[in-house]
Design a protein around this nucleic acid. Structure first.
Lengths: 121, 121
DNA sequence: CCTTTACTACGATGGTTGTCGTAGTAAAGT
DNA sequence: ACTTTACTACGACAACCATCGTAGTAAAGG
């Protein structure tokens, strides 16, 4: 399975949030973050469709694109790869790097603890 | 500051573990993992030295290379970037992905909780 | 002194990624 | 019918990354 590149992930993140969109709308959202040409967005999405990352269906004269791969599956894969390459595969080492940073808000900390408690059951 | 690429990180990981080494030795260690040409390793390390990622000093007719950038600083930066691009900057979201989907051993879980408790102070 | 060996320097290449420009086509407005 | 607009298809391109080949230079061994 192909994993998305950086720019592809940006598009996927939009689509995961919105379900399905036309290029135009994805493009608009991308441009709220950074300048990018319309044909760039288009090309990316076409390539992604060809790769099997996106599906598209004709609607009038334009296409509507929707994500094929699942968010959590994909992010899991990316995370796994990142842990491998950066932390030698050690999840806890990543964790300590993540939390040892001291920039974790109390709120985040609480979220995490709640989550841990929930897992425990 | 330039951040290391994938292949550069492999070399850095070796050097962080060993302190300082000649190309030959780094090359040998890399080859224990995957096949790679000597000049490839050499070129990488030369480029890294030029980028300021490595320092080198002459020893006889060869160079001894050592890392300039710090391990935790670097990994922090990489982690930060990864969180931004993949999880929209949310550390807790990364955490839940990390703990929720993959299998976490009880041991790891304990490590994490201990660490959290320690942070809390 | 000559040959082999050990490093190094330099340049070239192929693949991937992200970026557009141009041009074609179909629809919609006038 | 004609012009403008909205998408799409196609190809080109620069940047970067990883990879290596070739050739130079200096030391070491005979």
């Amino acid at each position: 399975m192909t994993t998305p590149t950086q720019a592809e992930l940006e598009i996927l993140n939009i689509l995961w949030g919105m379900g399905e969109l036309r290029v135009q709308e994805v493009h608009k959202q991308l441009n709220e973050v950074r300048p990018i040409g319309y044909t760039t967005t288009l090309k990316m999405m076409q390539v992604m469709a060809q790769k099997g990352l996106l599906a598209r269906q004709l609607d009038g004269r334009s296409h509507i694109y929707s994500p094929v791969i699942q968010e959590s599956t994909t992010k899991n894969k990316l995370l796994s790869r990142f842990v491998d390459s950066t932390f030698g595969g050690s999840r806890s080492q990543l964790l300590m790097q993540l939390l040892g940073n001291a920039k974790v808000s109390d709120e985040e900390l609480k979220e995490i603890k709640d989550f841990l408690a929930q897992i425990e059951e």
